[in-house]
């Protein structure tokens, strides 16, 4: 096991990731403690999505070490599935299973991976559907729901696996503006309840109010990492200042 601080639920050390000749992650190191809320921001192509996708091994890092809840991420299959069931992910494009009803979407993984019984899975599913405030949609199909509703279902689906960490990959970027707040509300509630989360987002208001740490990435590197007050009021790095001026000006 790693030599890092055992209170760290996620540990990245000197991680590199290449896509062909293009280096998406350059010597990235990051530690996440249990209960911490991290927001990762940066311009497109900065590697922020790649970073969190390496954590549940949707992308494979090329060098360096990644440890998630005591499991080091290598090629061993057993470990990967185990890691993934403890880490929840919410995607920009929701990725709800179109051929299953909402409730079935939520029940699928618990039944197959945790071997829950049908009734257990259903109870858990309804519990989380109520958490995200749309229990009445249980028997509908994803295509019948609005974008904001679908994303809330996606969050509930990830929560049904009782993850230790939640990863959010630009969860509101594909939503119409009027639906963004309903999703952010759910995420804020989650944070308040103590869920460890890493969130890639452009929603700076959310970062300010919820994050313990804001990480700025540019060109594959972590440029700056600070608690929100320090980050937004007194950015240290030139690139951070430039990015903030661009996104906060309009």
């Amino acid at each position: 096991m790693g030599d890092g601080d055992p209170a760290n639920i996620i540990e990245l050390e000197n991680v590199d990731k290449f896509f062909g000749a293009f280096q998406a992650l350059k010597n990235v190191s990051l530690s996440v403690k249990k209960g911490e809320r991290i927001v990762v921001c940066g311009p497109s192509g900065s590697g922020k999505s790649t970073l969190i996708r390496c954590i549940n091994r949707l992308e494979e890092h090329d060098s360096g070490k990644i440890v998630v809840n005591g499991h080091e991420l290598t090629g061993a299959v057993k470990d990967i599935d185990a890691v993934r069931s403890e880490v929840g992910m919410v995607f920009q494009s929701f990725n709800l299973f179109p051929h299953l009803t909402i409730i079935k979407n939520l029940m699928l993984a618990p039944r197959l991976v945790r071997k829950s019984s049908k009734s257990e899975a259903r109870d858990t599913a309804m519990k989380y559907l109520e958490r995200v405030k749309i229990p009445e949609q249980a028997d509908k199909y994803p295509s019948q729901l609005s974008g904001g509703q679908q994303q809330r279902v996606a969050i509930a689906r990830a929560l049904c696996m009782n993850p230790l960490v939640m990863l959010f990959d630009e969860p509101t970027s594909a939503l119409d503006p009027e639906m963004i707040s309903e999703v952010l509300e759910v995420m804020t509630d989650l944070a308040r309840e103590g869920m460890t989360m890493i969130c890639v987002t452009h929603e700076m208001g959310f970062a300010r109010s919820v994050a313990d740490n804001v990480v700025f990435m540019d060109n594959g590197e972590i440029v700056e990492s600070n608690p929100p007050d320090a980050f937004f009021e007194a950015p240290k790095n030139e690139r951070t200042k430039l990015f903030l001026s661009q996104i906060l000006s309009h």
Binding site: D81, A82, E86, L108, V113, M161
Partner: peptide, 30 residues
């Protein structure tokens, strides 16, 4: 079958076999 759907299955911890049977196959048939 949309790659994102398979990724979502993977992210939930579903094994490759489970993903193929419960996600890929029904959608592929349609």
């Amino acid at each position: 079958v949309d790659r994102g759907l398979k990724e979502a299955g993977a992210a939930l911890g579903l094994s490759a076999r489970h993903r193929f049977i419960y996600i890929t196959t029904p959608i592929a048939i349609r």
